[in-house]
Nucleic acid binder design. Structure first.
Lengths: 198, 198
DNA sequence: ATAGTATTAGTACAGTTGTATTAAAAAGGG
DNA sequence: CCCTTTTTAATACAACTGTACTAATACTAT
């Protein structure tokens, strides 16, 4: 009967336009009008897919976490575990332009998290998922007896988690001072330092 | 002749009002009117001290770095070096309510850094100062022959720097999931892991 | 006291904001 | 073709934004 548009596909397109505006002009200038214009839509049309700006922002932030999650899931090769873990963790770092954009958007929304309950909820869930994943990696390394003897598994998970986000944030905010190479090198160095000598 | 007001003192008062508004309602709602009201001033009066909102934000962000810097400078006791370094680094973490507020404000402004040249400049300078300080600590530990043999001084500085900011950010964003105690414990654990066994 | 200036306050303005409302356009099924 | 419903577009509105301007106020030094 009527014109049919794939809602989810369209919403993703709008969310990507939101990313663009945020990266170019910042969250405080990401008005509904600018986003609609960036997506080549009218404001009324955009609001047909996102009833409110809050919905749009929530979906746009959520899209970042989905992209990252899918990327990690596609990494299930049959490589040696240490190498596989290393690659999975590297997926979370902003190692190329696409990932830098996503991380930058995530960073900006994370700040808003402090005064936005809906974004806070999402942020918390993703944080716990990430922590759980890192704990699994640490525990797996331990089960494989690859870790040094005197490590504290719980603290090591916290440390690795903080290190990854710290490196990512530093590279996003100061790409010239903390280069891509240093970021990757430091993560590898850290993982090596956890493991027994070869 | 005229009424005299200590400009710098007044500006600090206004900046602290800015912090309050940012923590309570977020940077996007930190309008000149709200900040003036929070500081019990009229908008016209506020603008007598800060000609533009940009000036106000820059000063307010700068005030955070000054507070942290002064705190570290006051730490020059005559304790054993490892302990002294540990305490200096703990000063950067949001270990109490005042420091949490400052770090939260810093975090929010850091995100704005990505689209604001003046804030970016400040952020870059503070980042480099922090990195330099951490390098000095690592190098001192090495000179005192406290470090393990196989450490890479450059990478260790990057790693410690990222770990500290990562821990701080995680505690600010997820205080219930990364507790104050875990944050401090993890930093101590890390420093121990760099040093020779006793 | 009074003159003069730093400081405050009030008002105004043009622009932007999110959202609501309403109607036109488009397209698939009969 | 035409009906039905999705999708688009346009307009309107009240609230808020940063900033400019003007005048009143408060206080100090002579």
């Amino acid at each position: 009967m009527p014109k049919i548009v794939d809602h989810n596909e369209r919403k993703i397109k709008i969310a990507e336009a939101t990313w663009n505006v945020i990266v170019r002009e910042g969250l405080e200038n990401a008005s509904v009008r600018k986003i609609a214009s960036e997506a080549n839509l009218s404001v009324g049309s955009l609001r047909h897919y996102f009833p409110s700006q809050s919905d749009l922002f929530l979906f746009s932030m959520e899209l970042v976490s989905e992209r990252v999650r899918k990327r990690i899931e596609n990494k299930n090769d049959d490589k040696p575990p240490l190498e596989l873990f290393q690659e999975a963790l590297l997926e979370v770092l902003p190692i190329d332009e696409d990932r830098k954009i996503e991380m930058e958007v995530w960073l900006v929304f994370s700040a808003k998290t402090l005064v936005d309950r809906r974004l806070e909820e999402l942020s918390k869930n993703v944080f716990i998922q990430m922590r759980t994943g890192i704990e699994k990696i640490i525990n797996s390394l331990d089960s494989l007896q690859l870790l040094k003897e005197d490590v504290d598994l719980h603290v090591e998970a916290i440390r690795l988690h903080a290190l990854i986000d710290g490196l990512a944030t530093h590279h996003i905010l100061h790409p010239n001072t903390l280069t891509n190479e240093e970021m990757i090198l430091t993560l590898r160095y850290h993982l090596q330092s956890l493991c027994k000598e070869v």
